[in-house]
Design a binder for these strands. Sequence first.
RNA 1: GCCGGCGUGGCGCAAUUGGUAGCGCACUCGACUUGUAAUCGAGCGGUUCCCGGUUCGAGUCCGGGCGUCGGCUCCA
Length: 688
Amino acid sequence: MVASSPAVQAALRVTVPAGTTAGQALRDAGAPTTGSDALVVARDPQGVLRDLAWAPDSDTEVDAVSASSPDGRSVIRHSCAHVLAQAVQQHFPDAKLGIGPPVADGFYYDFDVDRPFTPEDLAVLEKTMRRIIKAGQRFSRRVLGSAEDAKRELADEPYKLELVDLKASTVTIDPDEVMEIGAGELTVYDNVHPHTGETIWGDLCRGPHVPTTRHIPAFRLMRTAAAYWRGNEHNPQLQRIYGTAWESTEALEQHLEFLAEAQRRDHRKLGAELDLFSFPDEIGSGLPVFHPRGGTVRRVMEDYSRRRHEEAGYEFVNSPHITKGQLFETSGHLDWYADAMFPPMHLDEELAEDGTVRKPGQDYYLKPMNCPFHNLIYRSRGRSYRELPLRLFEFGSVYRYEKSGVVHGLTRVRGMTQDDAHIYCTPEQLQGEICSLLTFVLDLLRDFGLDDFYLELSTRDDEKYVGTDEQWEEATDALRLAAEASGLELVLDPGGAAFYAPKISVQAKDALGRAWQLSTIQVDLQEPDLFKLEYTAKDGSRQRPYMIHRALFGSIERFFGVLTEHYAGAFPAWLAPVQVVGIPIADEHVEHLQQVAKALRARGIRVEVDASDERMQKKIRTHTTQKVPFLLLAGGKDVEAGAVSFRFRDGTQINGVGVEDAVGAITGWVARRENRSPSAAELPIGQP
RNA sequence: GCCGGCGUGGCGCAAUUGGUAGCGCACUCGACUUGUAAUCGAGCGGUUCCCGGUUCGAGUCCGGGCGUCGGCUCCA
C-alpha cells in the first residue's frame, strides 16, 4: 500500500554482537528509525520476531522488519491493542482483560465490563490513547518465573488466569491468539514511563512490541461488538473494541478510503439504487425478490451458464422444491442438518372421532439441497458404464434456515438458487473429471470478469466424518492433484471438509482485492452408498459410481451480489440490464432514435428511448447514475446526418457516428462479452 | 441463536425537556423544446414497523414481537 524503502524491504541483515541489542545493531547498519519504514522489531535466525531490545547470548544475525511490512504492521497493531487496554482500564477500572490480538487490517481487544461501550466512550478512549502514545511509554519485556508467579500477578484478571492455565496444559487455541500465549516462557509486557522508569501498566503477552508507544504513528478505533470468550458461544460474551493502526497517516487514510469505497459498492445499497432487487419485510428475512432490472442481469447470467454447461456435456434436469421427509432420511440430512432446514409441513393426517390418529400423515420439507433428487434421477433406471460420466445440471432453488443473525444481503440468504450439478463417474474417470471441471469453473469465472483466484482444499474433520480412510485419501488426492495442476495458489484448510466430502473451493478476489468463496467441488463419500447407486460395468458386474458435487456461482444470488460489488454496479455491457438509452435533444428527435432502437432491438440489444418530458441534461444524469453503458444522443445535426452521438459511462463522447456503424459497434461489443466499461478510447468506431 | 445500535411517505433525512409530523429525491399534472450530469410551478403520498402499557396527551418514555445494521457463533 505504502511504498517502502528498498533497503529494508530487501531484508537488511546484520550481526548482533553478544551483549548488544538488535535495535542498536540495525541502527548502526543504517536501518531507518523514523517514518513509515522505521524498524519496529527484528527477526532472529529462526524467523521469530524479536523486540529491538533483544540481546542474544552470542553473535547472531538478525533481519530488519520495517513498520510497513505485514509483520511490522501486526506488531504496531498489537502494541496499539495494549494502549487501548491501558486506556480502557484507566476509564473503567473494573474492566477485566480478555485478549487483544492483531487481525487483518487492525486489532481488537476484548473486555469484561458492566455495560457495553458507546460511541462516546470510543471518542474518549481515542483521546486517552493519543495521550499515551505521545507520552512515549516504553514496552518492557519481563519473564515470569513460573505459572504460580503469573497467577499471583494476574490475580485480578480471571481471563488471563485461564490463559496461563491453558498455556500450562499446552492447549493450542485460535491462531489469532498466538501473539497472546504462544509457545515458550510466560512473559509480561510492562508499559514504562520513559524518564522515571515507573511501570504504568502491564499485560500478559508473548510480544513482541514496538520499542515505545511513539512507534504507533496512526490508529483509529472503529466499532464495538460483543464476542464470546475464546469464540465459544457457551462462554460469556465480552465487549470487543475493534481498531485499526498503520505505519503512517497516509496508510491509515488509504485504508479508510478503501472502507469508504467498499461501502459505496455495497450490493445492498446498489440493489436499491439501481432497482435490482429488494427484501420486502412481508416475505421474510433472507428472501429476496428480483425486480425487472435485476431479473434481466440474472437471466443473462443463467443463459450464459446454461450455454456453457450444454457445451461441456451436462444434461438438464428439474426437481421440485418440496419432498417427503423420507428422501432426507435416506440422504442423512435429517440426521445431520435438521437444524438448518425449515421445519416440516405435516400433511394428510386424519383423526378419528375420539381425537386419536387414524392415519399418521406425512412430513414434507423444503429442500436444502438438490443432490438427493439427482440421485433419484440417476437411479430411475439401470445405468451402464457407457453413460458415465453422467452430468446432471439444475438451477435448483434450495431453502436453508440460516440463523437470524447471519442473514446478509444476497451473500447469505434463506432461499437461493444454486447452479448445481452432480457428476456420476467410474473410479477411473474421477481424476480426469475433476481436472476438466476445475478448468471449466475457472474459465466461467473469468468470463464474468473475475480473474484473481486462489484455491482452498478442505480436508477431513477427524471428529466428524463418514467413509473409510482409503476413500478420503483417494478423493482428497484427486482434488489436490487437480488443484496443483491448475497452477493456482493452494491454501490448506485442515478439518474444514463437510462430514461426507473433501472440498476444493475457488476463492475469487474482486476489484477491491476482497476474496469471496464462490465455486465448490466436492467428492461425495456417502450418498452413492446411501442411495445404493450402481452402474453395470464392462464385465457385467454391478459397480458403485463416484459422485461429484459442484456449484460454480455457488448460488446465483451470492454471485450476483459479488459481481455487483466487483463492478460497483457498472455491469459490463453484456450483463447490463439496460444496455443503451436513447436521449433526444428535443421531442422532434425521438422518432429518429426510435428507428435506431428498433435496429438495435432487432440485434438483441436491450435498449430504451427516454422520451419523457425532461431536460436532456437531466436524462444524461439519470442514466449515467443508472450506469447505462451506452447513451445515444440525437439532435438536429444527427438526424440530418443519419447519425447518433455516443456518451459513455465515464463521460467521454464520440459524436456524429453513422447509425449503422453505431449499431455494429454496440452489437459487436456486447457479442464479445467485453468486461471493460466502454469509453471513447475503447470503442472501435471511426471518428466522423 | 447471542450482544449492541437502528426502524418516520417508494428512497435519503428533519421534528426543543412528551403537545397531534416537515424537507429533498422519486411519482402525477401543467408550462417550457433545450447539444452532453439536476428547468419552473402545482399536486399526490405517512395508523411515525407491529402489539400492549404509562400519560390529559407518545414519533419521542416502558414491555414484548418483527425487521434491519455491526460483530460473535454458524455456514451441509
